Amino acid sequence: MNLPKIVSELVKTQNNFDSVAYANCFSEKAVVFDEGKTHNGRKEIEHWIADANERYQSIMTPVSYEQNGTESILKADVSGTFPGSPIVLSYHLKIDNELIQSLKITG
């Protein structure tokens, strides 16, 4: 599967549990929507993913990727220490200037 560089980096940093590198995949004013909560800006995203990494130890395996302009959907098989693992999640991404501007994670 041919993923854009920033999406490949997002997967790699998630699988390495590197919350700082993960957050650096996002623009300074990026927004993440996950589990009914909104996380604004790179620092909040870093704290959110660090907490999620500690709680869930999630590993992503890309299943499919569709892109339409600046919007794309990455479907990934996600396994970890959460109820219902593994599960296929959809990562709705808006990418601009090679950085993620927004991410919404859905089941």
Rank of each mutant, 00 (worst) to 15 (best):
N2K: 14
S8N: 10
E9M: 14
L10I: 03
L10M: 11
T13H: 11
Q14V: 06
Q14P: 01
N16H: 10
F17C: 02
F17R: 09
D18L: 13
V20A: 09
V20L: 08
Y22E: 07
N24G: 02
F26H: 04
E28W: 01
K29D: 15
K29W: 01
A30D: 03
V32I: 08
V32R: 04
E35S: 13
G36R: 07
T38A: 13
H39D: 06
G41C: 01
G41Q: 00
R42W: 00
K43C: 02
K43A: 15
K43D: 15
E46C: 11
W48Q: 13
A50R: 09
A52H: 08
A52G: 03
N53H: 10
R55K: 15
Y56D: 07
Y56I: 01
Q57C: 05
I59D: 06
P62V: 02
S64Q: 11
N68W: 08
N68F: 13
E71M: 12
K75H: 14
D77F: 15
D77Y: 15
G80T: 06
T81D: 14
T81S: 13
L89D: 10
I95C: 07
I95V: 15
I95T: 11
N97T: 10
E98W: 02
E98M: 05
L99C: 00
L99Y: 10
I100P: 08
Q101P: 01
S102F: 01
